[in-house]
Structure formats: structure tokens, C-alpha cells
């Protein structure tokens, strides 16, 4: 009896969590599902002249899937019956379904700057990530391992600014960027991102845990400060570097408020800015909007699946995420 109760309790637990998980993943699923939904047919043979994107009740999966299977089956029966003409007809409809399902992706890549936006987002995120990894490890290293006048002052100055919300500096940063002649350039995104302080904090915490003997051994071998840094500190910091790198990349890739302020030229847009203008111009073409959203979501989803353990480690190391 007790055993039964325990078992059903566990079943109930799994069910509750699974329902919660489905609810939380549903919007993301809806992005992809809508982006692949069939739109109103041009071809009269495909009977239903309605768009499945705007259907009531909504279709819970891309209608193209079931239609495709239907025509595939009919094509096979027709082939068996030796009716080549009919089979070819169904095959043509099948490729029409594919074209229709992916139509908005095709549109995006043909008629908008989305390649440009992806490229911009990607290279800015890479440049900032590499820059942050180098300069934050340098700063974190001396703050953790060296004693020099002003060390604590510098550290506390850096940490205390973590409390200030970024919006406080919005206006002065904007004026600054204009005065430096950086407005509407990618430097206006890259330079301020390099001032983020979380990494210094993270690298310092991590390097504090590395025993001094390891560093001293290198110094006895006569290595200079820079060589010690490159050959000992950097290799030892790999786990922390991976975490910092991934979170920096994610934050830059997803950043939105600052880029919409300093970017004007459509060729310079990053992906989130591009998506905003796409939405402003096509307020109710949801299949198009969801296709754009899907294009933006895929890289982060892949990165997350590939580097999961670093995300978890990073969060538990000190709590990241904007």
C-alpha cells in the first residue's frame, strides 16, 4: 500500500513538473511552429484557401507536415497503380508545401538585411568576448594575487558600480559616444561593453582559489610577469574563462536597449535591432516575424545545448544574467 502511494506520488510529481516545463517551452515552440505554418495557397488544387497562421482555432503544429504526408502517401499509391501523371502531380504539391512552409525564411534572406544583422551580432559578440576575456583576466589576476597601493580602493570602486542601474548612464553615454565620434558605428557598442565589470569580479574570485605556489614556481624559472600570465594563469583559468566567455557572448548577442539608441544605419543593425525594425514595418505578418525570431533564437539555443554545464557553473559561481 505504502509502496503504491509512493509510486503514484512520484508519478504525480513528474506530471506536475512536466506540465510546468511544457508551459514554459510553449512560447518558444510557438515561434517555430508559426514560422513554418502554411499560408494561403496559390495552388487551387490544395482545396483550403485559408492561412493556417491566422486560423481559429489555431493549428498546434505546422499544417504542412500532415499535408506533406498525405500527398506522399497518395503519390506512392499512384506509383503502385502505375499512374505516373498523378504521382508527379502529388510530388509537385509536396515540393510546393515545402516552399510554402519555409516561404518567410526565404523572404527574410532575400529581401531583408538579415545576413548582415547576423554577421554584425556575431562579430561584435566575438570581439567583445575576446576583449573581455583578456582584459578582465588581467585585472582579476593582479587584484587577486598582487599587493600594491590602491588595490582595495580599485576593487571596491569596481564592485560598487555593479549596483548602479545601466539606465542612469544612458544620457551621458550617448553624449560621450557622440563627442568621441562613435555614434552609429559598432565601436559605440563594443567600447561600452568592454567596461562591464562582472568579469573582473568573477576572475578575481576564481583566481583567489589558485594556490600561489603554482605562480611562484613559474617565477623561479625566471619567467617575467607577462609570461607567467600567459603560460600559467591563462591555462589554469580555463573553466572560469569558459563561463565568462559564454555569458559575455550571450549578453552581447541579446543586448537591445543600447543598440537601438546608437545605431541608425540599417547596415549596422544587430539582430535584435533588426527584428525590432522588422516588427515595426510588418506589425501583423506574424509568420514573417516568427521566422525572424526563430533565426535569432537558434544560435543561442545551440550554444546553450552545447555548453550547458558552463551556464550552470557560471550561475552558481556568482549569479550572472542581466
Amino acid at each position: 500500500m505504502n509502496h503504491m502511494a509512493k509510486k503514484s506520488g512520484k508519478f504525480f510529481l513528474y506530471m506536475m513538473i512536466s506540465i510546468a516545463a511544457i508551459i514554459s517551452l510553449l512560447p518558444l515552440y510557438w515561434v517555430f511552429s508559426t514560422s513554418l505554418q502554411l499560408t494561403a495557397y496559390q495552388d487551387e488544387d490544395l482545396a483550403q484557401p485559408i492561412s493556417y497562421v491566422e486560423a481559429s482555432p489555431p493549428k498546434f503544429y505546422p499544417a504542412g507536415i500532415s499535408e506533406y504526408i498525405e500527398h506522399w502517401q497518395e503519390a506512392r499509391t499512384a506509383e503502385k497503380d502505375g499512374n505516373i501523371e498523378l504521382a508527379t502531380h502529388h510530388r509537385e504539391l509536396m515540393s510546393g508545401i515545402i516552399t510554402n512552409s519555409f516561404s518567410m525564411y526565404a523572404y527574410l534572406f532575400k529581401h531583408t538585411n538579415i545576413w548582415r544583422w547576423i554577421f554584425n551580432s556575431f562579430y561584435i559578440a566575438v570581439v567583445v568576448t575576446i576583449g573581455i576575456l583578456i582584459i578582465d583576466t588581467m585585472a582579476g589576476y593582479v587584484l587577486a594575487k598582487k599587493r600594491f597601493p590602491g588595490r582595495n580602493l580599485i576593487f571596491w570602486l569596481i564592485v560598487s558600480t555593479m549596483m548602479i542601474p545601466g539606465q542612469v548612464t544612458l544620457v551621458p553615454m550617448f553624449i560621450m559616444v557622440q563627442k568621441l565620434g562613435l555614434f552609429d558605428t559598432h565601436w559605440a557598442l563594443i567600447f561600452p561593453d568592454l567596461s562591464m565589470v562582472f568579469g573582473v569580479f568573477l576572475m578575481r574570485q576564481f583566481l583567489l582559489s589558485i594556490p600561489n605556489e603554482l605562480l611562484d614556481a613559474a617565477r623561479i624559472d625566471g619567467a617575467g610577469e607577462w609570461r607567467t600570465f600567459m603560460t600559467v594563469v591563462i591555462p589554469l583559468s580555463k573553466p572560469a574563462l569558459a563561463t565568462l566567455g559564454i555569458f559575455t557572448f550571450m549578453n552581447v548577442w541579446n543586448s537591445f536597449l543600447w543598440p537601438i539608441i546608437v545605431l541608425n544605419n540599417a547596415d549596422l543593425y544587430t539582430l535584435p535591432v533588426g527584428l525590432k525594425t522588422l516588427q515595426d514595418a510588418n506589425l501583423s505578418i506574424f509568420k514573417l516575424l516568427m521566422s525572424g525570431a526563430a533565426v535569432a533564437a537558434i544560435p543561442m539555443i545551440i550554444i546553450f545545448i552545447a555548453f550547458q554545464q558552463y551556464f550552470i557553473k557560471g550561475l552558481t559561481l556568482g549569479g550572472v544574467k542581466e
Binding site: S24, L28, T34, L275, L289, A293, M300, F304
Partner: peptide, 20 residues
């Protein structure tokens, strides 16, 4: 992972799909 996955995508995407 299932619960963290939606958090890695940009709020821009989440806002767009919720508008829909």
C-alpha cells in the same frame, strides 16, 4: 535545462512571440 532554455533567448524574441 528545460526551464533554463527559454531564458537564454533574447527578451526581444519572447516579447515578439507573446505579442502574437
Amino acid at each position: 535545462s528545460a526551464f533554463y532554455l527559454p531564458t537564454v533567448t533574447s527578451m526581444v524574441i519572447i516579447a515578439m512571440v507573446w505579442r502574437w
